[in-house]
């Protein structure tokens, strides 16, 4: 009993288009609404800009633009997940946050080659809860990847 407890981890589930994704909840700092961002010139379109998060300058990425899904509007219901990855703080806009689930290690199955908007390199596996299938994302790997252009390449290469 104690052993399985130790192996159970919590994941935050968010939606992006038709799919549900799960990320390690320990990487999540907070969830907040979408504020006005300050645009950064010459950055990729999906990097919306930076916000002031209690004195820290935090970049905001719109995952909907990045992966070309969802309805890209910014209103009171737009959700930003503030992540803490590799000692950095990054915000990502998603379609919605559904819930927090608890999964044991054996509940996560290796991902087959399948059609997802996200590159399978960043997918840790598939978690099944009843009827739902949740795609487990290695958010640290994704955020430090070259294609997100969030970090200087030298730094990203070291990760």
């Amino acid at each position: 009993m104690a052993e399985t407890d130790a192996q159970r981890r919590e994941f935050l589930v968010f939606t992006l288009g038709q799919e549900e994704y799960g990320i390690d909840i320990l990487k999540v700092q907070e969830i907040r609404g979408y504020d006005a961002v300050t645009r950064l010139a010459k950055s990729p379109e999906f990097i919306k800009g930076v916000i002031n998060l209690r004195g820290h300058i935090v970049p905001i990425i719109d995952m909907r633009i990045k992966f070309g899904v969802g309805n890209i509007v910014y209103n009171d219901f737009t959700v930003v997940i503030i992540l803490n990855v590799l000692g950095r703080t990054v915000g990502m806009v998603v379609d919605g946050v559904s819930d927090v689930i608890e999964l044991a290690g054996e509940d996560i199955k290796p991902a087959p080659e399948f059609g997802s908007v996200m590159d399978t390199a960043y997918i840790q596996g598939l978690g099944a809860i009843g009827e739902r299938m949740i795609i487990m994302v290695d958010i640290e790997k994704l955020m430090s990847s070259q294609e997100m252009a969030l970090m200087d390449s030298a730094l990203a290469a070291n990760v």
Binding site: T38, L40, G55, H56, I57, D152, L155
Partner: peptide, 17 residues
Amino acid sequence: VKNIEANYRKVEGLSGA
């Protein structure tokens, strides 16, 4: 003065925020 690079990369033409 705040550092942009703390959470993002260097942006050409900007020294900070």
